[in-house]
Amino acid sequence: MTDRHWLHGETLYSQVENTLRGGATFMQLREKALDYDNFLAEAKDLQRLCRSYRVPFVINDNVDIALAMDADGVHVGQNDMEAGDVRAKLGPGKILGVSAETVEEAVLAEKRGADYLGVGTVFPTRSKDDAIPVSHETLTAICDAVSIPVIAIGGITLSNAGELAGSGICGIAVISAIFGQPDIEAATAWLLEATREMIGK
Rank of each mutant, 00 (worst) to 15 (best):
A24Q: 11
A24S: 14
A24H: 08
A24R: 11
F26H: 14
F26G: 06
M27P: 00
M27G: 08
Q28V: 13
R30I: 11
R30F: 10
E31C: 02
K32Q: 08
K32F: 08
A33R: 12
A33D: 15
L34K: 03
L34T: 01
Y36N: 07
D37A: 15
D37H: 11
D37E: 15
N38A: 05
F39Q: 05
E42I: 11
A43R: 11
A43D: 11
A43W: 14
D45W: 02
L46E: 02
L46P: 00
Q47M: 13
R48W: 12
R48H: 13
L49M: 12
C50I: 08
C50F: 06
R51H: 15
R51T: 12
R51Y: 14
S52E: 15
S52M: 13
S52D: 15
V55C: 10
P56E: 09
V58E: 02
V58C: 08
V58L: 03
I59Y: 04
N60E: 08
N60C: 10
N60V: 04
D61K: 02
D61G: 00
D61C: 03
N62D: 15
N62A: 06
V63I: 13
I65Q: 01
A66M: 07
A66F: 07
A66S: 11
L67N: 04
L67V: 04
A68T: 03
M69W: 10
D70M: 09
D70F: 03
D72F: 13
G73A: 08
G73M: 03
V74Q: 06
V74D: 00
H75E: 04
H75K: 02
G77Q: 03
Q78R: 12
Q78S: 13
N79P: 00
N79W: 01
D80C: 00
D80Q: 03
M81P: 09
M81K: 05
E82G: 03
A83L: 04
G84T: 08
D85N: 11
V86M: 06
V86Y: 11
R87S: 02
R87D: 01
A88H: 15
A88T: 15
A88L: 14
A88P: 10
K89A: 09
K89C: 03
L90F: 09
L90V: 09
G91P: 00
G91E: 01
G91C: 04
P92Y: 11
G93E: 14
G93K: 13
K94I: 05
L96K: 07
V98N: 05
S99E: 10
S99P: 05
S99R: 05
S99L: 02
A100V: 08
V103G: 05
E104P: 03
A106E: 05
A106H: 06
V107C: 03
V107F: 09
L108A: 15
A109T: 07
K111F: 07
K111W: 05
G113M: 01
G113C: 04
G113Y: 06
G113K: 01
A114R: 02
D115G: 06
D115K: 07
D115C: 09
D115R: 08
Y116R: 01
Y116T: 08
Y116N: 02
Y116G: 03
L117R: 00
L117K: 04
G118C: 11
V119T: 01
V119N: 06
V119Y: 06
G120A: 05
T121L: 06
T121S: 15
T121K: 11
T121C: 14
V122W: 02
V122T: 02
